[in-house]
Simulated scan of single mutants.
Amino acid sequence: MYKKEDVSLKIELVTMHRVCNYGSALQAYATQSVMERLGHSVEILDYYPERMHFSGMLKRLKNKKEIFENNPVLCFIAQCIIFPSYIKRFYIFRTFMKKHFKISSVRYNDLGSIQSSPPAADVYCTGSDQVWNSEWSEQVDRAFYLDFGSPITPRISYAASFGKAQLDDNEFNEIKLLLSKYKYISVREASGIDILNKMELPGELVLDPTLLPDKSQWSKLASDRYRDKKYILLYNLGREPELYDIAYAYAKKLRLPLYSVSYNLHEFVKPGRLLFCPKVCDWLSLIKNAQCVFSDSLHATAFSINFNTDFYVYYPGRFSTRLASLVELTGLKNRVLQKGKVPENENIDFSEANAAVQRERKLSFEFLTKALEAQQDGKDYITCPTS
């Protein structure tokens, strides 16, 4: 499964590497690392659209809440408050990116710039994360559908996500046409397979790339900063008030401190001790060494499972299909928080989850190896099973 191939391919990977988010950074790192372990040369195409820029994120604050959109003065105040947080956030993730990613020498700010000067590669690959989520991208972002370069260059995807259970009617046909150019398609959620089935396109369900390296491999990247501490960890991406309350009550019941990771300095007013935008390696250490993790995040849940750290997951109102697919796969649906209920202190027996991850890890490596070997051999499209 980990054997390097005789022929090395040049793979151009398009993924969410510029998003200042722990999950996005680590899935990009994992995808690149896994393909390299298979013996290939991997370069991340530096696609950096305006919406991911510092200024672009500030500008889009007005879209976060209706009150900001209708009140420019209030929006400006919010931008001033968030500005210091963005400085550290961008510094933390750019530092990680420069140290661990192999990125193209050319930076592309839009699809047109890629189409006018596409990178040369043996294979184009759409990586993981919510690359096909048009709501998050504010459009059907054709760069993530590899709509550039020579039509004879093979296109594949690994663990791509639509981020939702079904597509809007006005985007269905466009996306189907774009995906029909792929030789191999894999997605990370069962709902993604349903979407592909409706398009009559073959695809395989694979693990999120963060679950391909095992605990020992991620431990090498994690720091030792929190190794000897006892705490409950909260990672609340959606800022759900109920999740704050449940995690705080649980920590109080166990008489342990609550550590709350946030990208925003102004959230020091929330329950627990604020850990303001820790380094990526420290974030891994926090999950690895916690007594229990409370989160609405796919990747915090995935790393909890990989590290065998007790956890509870809260389904956000939107884009929860990815979390549901993971907990169902690992047989851990009993770790989904019930509304308004503080859970008991019950440790997880990870034996079933570990077996499921190991089984799916093997199948995921087999898919990736098969998809890349087909390009080495010059084979035509091979239909993938849809179940």
Results as ranks from 00 to 15, higher is better:
residue 1 M to Y: 04
residue 4 K to G: 07
residue 8 S to G: 15
residue 10 K to F: 01
residue 20 C to F: 03
residue 21 N to G: 15
residue 24 S to R: 05
residue 28 A to H: 04
residue 29 Y to P: 07
residue 38 L to R: 01
residue 45 L to Y: 00
residue 55 S to A: 08
residue 60 R to E: 12
residue 67 I to K: 14
residue 69 E to V: 02
residue 82 I to N: 03
residue 85 S to I: 15
residue 85 S to D: 08
residue 95 T to E: 12
residue 101 F to T: 05
residue 104 S to P: 03
residue 104 S to D: 01
residue 108 Y to V: 14
residue 109 N to E: 10
residue 116 S to E: 13
residue 125 C to N: 05
residue 125 C to P: 04
residue 126 T to D: 01
residue 132 W to R: 00
residue 133 N to R: 05
residue 136 W to Y: 08
residue 144 F to T: 06
residue 145 Y to L: 14
residue 145 Y to D: 00
residue 149 G to L: 06
residue 150 S to Q: 10
residue 154 P to A: 12
residue 155 R to V: 12
residue 158 Y to W: 09
residue 169 D to G: 02
residue 171 E to N: 02
residue 174 E to Q: 11
residue 183 K to S: 11
residue 193 I to R: 00
residue 195 I to L: 00
residue 200 E to Q: 15
residue 206 V to A: 06
residue 211 L to P: 10
residue 215 K to I: 07
residue 215 K to M: 13
residue 216 S to D: 10
residue 222 A to L: 05
residue 224 D to I: 06
residue 224 D to L: 13
residue 225 R to K: 15
residue 226 Y to I: 14
residue 226 Y to Q: 09
residue 230 K to D: 04
residue 232 I to K: 02
residue 232 I to N: 01
residue 243 L to C: 15
residue 244 Y to E: 06
residue 245 D to H: 14
residue 246 I to Q: 05
residue 249 A to H: 08
residue 252 K to R: 13
residue 261 V to I: 15
residue 263 Y to H: 11
residue 263 Y to C: 13
residue 265 L to G: 04
residue 268 F to L: 13
residue 273 R to P: 11
residue 276 F to Y: 14
residue 278 P to E: 14
residue 280 V to K: 12
residue 286 L to S: 10
residue 289 N to W: 07
residue 291 Q to H: 12
residue 293 V to L: 05
residue 296 D to Q: 08
residue 302 A to F: 01
residue 302 A to T: 11
residue 306 N to D: 03
residue 320 S to P: 02
residue 322 R to T: 01
residue 326 L to T: 01
residue 339 K to L: 04
residue 344 E to W: 08
residue 347 N to R: 13
residue 356 A to I: 06
residue 357 V to I: 14
residue 366 E to H: 10
residue 371 A to G: 04
residue 372 L to D: 13
residue 374 A to H: 03
residue 376 Q to A: 08
residue 379 K to S: 15
residue 383 T to Q: 13
residue 385 P to D: 05
residue 386 T to C: 07
